[in-house]
């Protein structure tokens, strides 16, 4: 029997949802195990880091790496799996663009520790104890991995062959990718986004678009939308226009706005900037308004979005052009 190619999956700074998305391919997981030697996946299997360290370099065919790089340990595992894998795939929004963990880039490591361990109404910490990288105890020195000042995407840390976006990637898309490898389909050029489309969620969305301008934005709880019409044109911030196709417009299909989990489409560097460009085109500033009236009216419309960075970069802040806030 010829040796089966190795498959591994790792979670760095992640939630576990990406593993669930993999097993959501249901009975097809048996085919995966039939065709691959599934050698490492801390969520599902018992193999350990030392087992991977013992492998020759490049001996894992494919590694699906989910999770962002928040800590020194995340970076260590990214480097180890890079070394041991032929094809390293950034799997899911966290490793592609930073996702929810990446939102913390608006604050420094110190801000985090201050809020979590010191200045928090539900925390009593009279000794002012915060995690230290090294702590002396009678038995010796204890080490904790560094909590970096910023969250990074996988490709900001190591070389990456492919990118599978989504929070989490859709199971049918995951299966398509695995199946094409099983069937020996020629892989796309290095650096490609796979398991997704190239255009936008709007292209997959069946809602009626009418080129309408809006007078205000609504948060989802403030409006019952017309289910046939484009949500954005009703004033609901739907990120579909700045988000890569691939999910089949799952959220708009059930009348929830797209929040952007597939990241930026082809040709777009920055999802938030793209969204700003799009929204700028749909504001109703018509009628002969004076400069002051235009400013006033624009402010009024804009005041209804409470958190711009959190709305426009919910999934892509660490991978955005600015990446993190200015550290003072």
């Amino acid at each position: 029997m010829t040796k089966k190619p190795g498959l591994s999956m790792y979670w760095a700074s992640s939630c576990g949802g990406c593993e669930i998305a993999l097993v959501n391919i249901n009975e097809k997981i048996l085919e995966v195990i039939d065709k691959f030697d599934f050698m490492f996946c801390p969520c599902l299997l018992d193999t350990k880091k030392k087992d991977i360290e013992a492998l020759p370099d490049k001996s894992i065919e494919i590694t699906l790496f989910n999770g962002a790089v928040r800590t020194e340990e995340n970076a260590e595992m990214a480097n180890l799996l890079r070394k041991k894998s032929k094809i390293l795939i950034a799997f899911g929004s966290c490793s592609n663009d930073g996702c929810i963990p990446g939102l913390s880039n608006l604050y420094s490591a110190k801000d985090h520790f201050d809020t979590i361990y010191l200045n928090n109404p539900t925390v009593s910490n009279p000794g002012g104890i915060v995690p230290q990288r090294e702590t002396e105890v009678p038995e010796g020195t204890l080490h904790l991995p560094e909590f970096y000042d910023t969250v990074r995407t996988l490709s900001q840390v190591v070389d990456v062959e492919y990118f599978i976006p989504g929070c989490p990637p859709e199971s049918n898309q995951i299966w398509d990718v695995i199946n094409s490898v099983i069937e020996g389909v020629k892989l796309p050029p290095k650096g490609s986004v796979i398991g997704a489309g190239t255009s936008t969620v709007c292209d997959e969305c069946e809602k009626i678009k009418e080129d309408k301008k809006i007078d205000r934005f609504y948060r989802t709880y403030e409006i019952i939308p017309d289910t046939k019409k484009c949500l954005l044109e009703q004033g609901i911030i739907c990120m579909g226009i700045a988000t890569r196709a691939g999910c089949g417009s799952l959220c708009p299909k059930v009348n929830m706005p797209c929040s952007g989990c597939y990241g930026a489409p082809d040709g777009v560097l920055d999802q938030g900037a793209k969204m700003i460009a799009a929204l700028g085109s749909i504001l109703n500033l018509e009628g002969d308004l004076t400069e002051e009236e235009i400013t006033g009216h624009t402010n009024k419309i804009m005041d209804s979005i409470p958190d711009y960075a959190g709305t426009f970069y919910k999934f892509s802040l660490a991978g955005s052009i600015l990446k993190n806030s200015v550290r003072k």
């Binding site: 460009a277 929204l279 700028g280 504001l283 500033l285 400013t295 624009t298 804009m302 711009y308 960075a309």
Partner: peptide, 13 residues
């Protein structure tokens, strides 16, 4: 007018 709206959002961001 598009530029005004975009600038306003950029400032907030």
């Amino acid at each position: 007018l598009k530029a005004v709206g975009r600038h306003n959002m950029l400032l907030r961001l």
